[in-house]
Simulated scan of single mutants.
Amino acid sequence: MREVVYLSEGKLNEFLPEPRRALPAVKLHAGVSLAGINVETPAPDNARNLRRHLERVEKELDRHTAWYTEPDLTPGCWVQFEAPLNWVTLRGRHQDLVLFVDPAPDSVSPHQPDTNRRLLLHGSARHLLGRPPIQVDGPALTGLEGSGHSAGTIFVTNAGRVVSALAHAHDPLESGTGTAEENPPMSQTSMQRSGIRDLLAAVDAESSEASTHALMFGYARVSALLAETATEMGCLVASPLIVEYAN
Results as ranks from 00 to 15, higher is better:
S150A: 12
T153A: 14
L144N: 08
I134H: 14
S164E: 13
L166A: 05
G146V: 02
N158P: 11
H168C: 05
I134A: 14
H168Q: 11
H149W: 07
E145V: 08
D171R: 00
I154C: 03
A140W: 08
G152T: 06
G152F: 03
L144C: 08
L166F: 01
D137M: 09
A140D: 06
F155C: 01
E145R: 14
G138F: 02
G160E: 06
A169C: 11
Q135T: 13
A167C: 04
H149E: 13
G152W: 03
V136R: 04
Q135R: 14
S147N: 13
G148Q: 05
F155Y: 14
F155W: 06
A151N: 15
N158Y: 12
L141I: 06
A151Q: 15
G160Y: 08
P139C: 10
I154V: 08
Q135E: 15
A167E: 02
L144G: 07
T153Q: 14
G138M: 04
H168P: 00
G148D: 07
R161K: 10
A167N: 13
A165G: 13
G143D: 04
S147E: 14
F155S: 02
A159P: 07
F155Q: 02
G146M: 03
S147G: 15
G143H: 03
G152M: 05
F155L: 06
V163T: 10
L141G: 01
G148V: 03
A159H: 01
S147W: 12
V162E: 10
H170G: 00
L144A: 10
I134Y: 07
A167Q: 07
I134V: 14
D171Q: 02
G152A: 06
H168E: 08
A151V: 10
H149T: 10
S147K: 12
A159N: 01
V136N: 06
S150F: 12
S147R: 13
D171G: 00
S164A: 14
E145A: 12
H149R: 12
A151S: 15
A169D: 10
N158Q: 14
F155G: 03
L141D: 01
G146I: 03
T153K: 14
V136S: 07
F155R: 01
H149G: 09
G146F: 02
L166S: 09
P139N: 10
S150E: 14
E145Y: 07
V163Q: 08
V163L: 09
G143V: 02
G148F: 02
F155P: 05
G138Q: 02
V136P: 06
G160A: 07
R161V: 01
S147A: 13
A165F: 03
H170R: 11
A169R: 15
S164I: 09
A165K: 09
V156L: 14
A159W: 01
G143T: 04
F155M: 05
D171N: 00
H168R: 13
Q135I: 01
V136A: 06
A167H: 14
S164T: 15
L141F: 03
T153V: 15
V136I: 13
S164N: 11
P139Q: 11
G160L: 05
R161H: 09
A159S: 05
L166R: 09
Q135G: 06
D137F: 07
D171F: 00
P139L: 09
Q135M: 12
V162S: 10
